[in-house]
Design a protein around this nucleic acid. Structure first.
Lengths: 301, 301
DNA sequence: TTGATCCATAAGGCTGCCTTATGCCAGCCC
DNA sequence: GGGCTGGCATAAGGCAGCCTTATGGATCAA
């Protein structure tokens, strides 16, 4: 089979030496391969003239078809390889996509205009090691065998709501939150947050469970004044900075889970993967700086 | 490169196991090759599902083009291989072609209707070992390295002429031939024949040298009554049998050379070569029988 | 004649491919 | 539900085939 490849090059160059150069091997190897192919075909494909080789009749019959076939192969593979180089496909959690990634993606496109990003949103964790995705964003503890992992930010929660909702409500202790409607009260993180706030025995089971299940929507509901949502502040930096969302209590409930950027170890050398990873990490670093800055101005005020 | 071949089969079958069967290797080898190709392309080409594999998007993009390219290759090679199988090309000496081979070729075509014979006539000895010819007919001593050789018949000479030419000529001893015009008196075999006849010192240098150089033409000239030609009786069996040519003396000059059928050792297993060789040998055997038969009838008469 | 170029060939080493053996996973069937 | 089967992955190991180096032959050019 590789003999065919050698033949193709030799036929194009009408020279074993040039073909060897093109293929990065020695002239002897070309001669060897051509002989293999001739034995296999049962007839000589080249006339050996003193200082050159020329195609025999059968060689001339073969050469154009072979070259054409290899052109087709080259085109097909280069097409796919271009796609592989220029399309980065990632699977991500819904809220990360809508509240973190998509708003910033324009900057990535500016940095890397030749890399197209395909986002697939899914709640389930897809098997990344042998999937078609280059990168995944997932929440967990970071121990995924076979995957390179980069922690992005912790999975923390804090209750937020619209400032209007607090009007006239006496909000002194965390338990006072229960005076307001909760968004997704069935979310078990609520129990954890109240526990972290020193109220381990809050019973939310009798509240109507209008769970939205997706932080993005919960945050939107909170902004709309429909109640108190438990959200990760990393996903609502603008709303918190602008005051559209306020924190009744500055108590973050921390979890053992974080958001991670992961990708198969096998593809860690891929340029597009490196580019995207570095960009995400720089964005996360920017977030932390901004958060620190806001904290400073707040304490300063 | 061979990984592409494996991919093509696997994509067609949508199964590594079937592909392995088709290619005559193990399923493990297919798996190995596909992995090689995927690493090289930088993206998976198959989705590994529980009891089957399916093409990924990139695999689907690749498969048709690859299959098409391989079809083209297969067609090109099978076309050439058919030609190799069905066309027997031979290089032969002019007289052998015209006076021996061509008149009998019809029988070969009847025996092997699927083998086409291409005859190339040349006086020079072409290098057979790596030429495009499958078979050669040459005159010599039979020591050609790298060639399989089959002796056909000896290179013997005997003077012949038209019976009309002998009218009124006293033809008792070989030297009497010189009373008649010689065809191609410059032919050195004349000297040899006279030497064999006990006349080593015949001087032919002063005769006009109207050499024809080709026995066929010399024989035709003799039949036409233009003189005495020195010919190989194997080439004129009909003319001798019918009496169009007669032998003034039944003295064959033998030489150390013979006519040989030769072919490259490398192609001795080729069906067409074997078929042609066997046919030629059977024809030669038939000649000998016929000659023996004629000799019998002559002595019987 | 000498040098340069191009191909063939022989010898030898090493890589890479294939096989064998085993494990895993899921579906199927009793 | 527990074997059983079918399909693929993986590891280990051996061997073949490919490539390289080195050399020779043949021709052309200077």
């Amino acid at each position: 089979m590789s003999a065919v490849r050698v033949f193709e090059a030799a036929a194009r160059h009408q020279s074993f030496t040039r073909a060897a150069e093109e293929l990065g091997m020695t002239q002897a190897a070309v001669s060897y391969q051509i002989k293999i192919l001739e034995d296999r075909v049962g007839a000589p494909l080249f006339n050996r003239l003193p200082r050159q080789v020329t195609l025999t009749a059968k060689g001339r019959q073969l050469a154009p078809a072979v070259t054409e076939a290899f052109e087709a192969l080259r085109n097909a593979f280069s097409g796919v390889e271009d796609a592989v180089q220029s399309v980065l496909s990632l699977t991500t959690l819904s809220t990360f996509a809508s509240n973190w990634l998509v708003p910033r993606l324009g900057r990535f496109r500016l940095l890397h205009p030749n890399i197209a990003v395909q986002i697939s949103v899914s709640t389930e964790i897809v098997e990344l090691v042998r999937s078609e995705f280059d990168i995944g964003i997932r929440s967990g503890t970071g121990d995924w065998p076979g995957l390179e992992t980069q922690m992005l930010f912790p999975n923390q929660f804090i209750p937020v709501c619209s400032p209007d909702l607090l009007q006239g409500v006496d909000m002194r202790e965390p338990i006072d939150i229960l005076k307001l409607p909760l968004i997704s009260p069935g979310d078990p993180w609520w129990q954890d947050w109240f526990a972290a706030a020193g109220e381990p025995n809050v019973d939310l089971s009798r509240r109507p469970d209008n769970s939205l299940g997706v932080q993005q929507l919960e945050g939107m509901a909170a902004i709309a004044g429909q109640g108190v949502a438990l959200i990760n502040p990393f996903f609502f930096p603008e709303d918190l900075a602008s005051g559209r969302l306020v924190k009744p209590f500055d108590l973050l409930a921390t979890t053992d889970r974080s958001y991670w950027l992961v990708y198969p170890k096998a593809r860690r050398r891929s340029a597009k993967v490196e580019a995207f990873r570095d960009w995400v990490l720089s964005e996360v670093a920017g977030d932390s700086e901004a958060a620190a800055c806001r904290a400073d101005t707040k304490t300063g005020a």
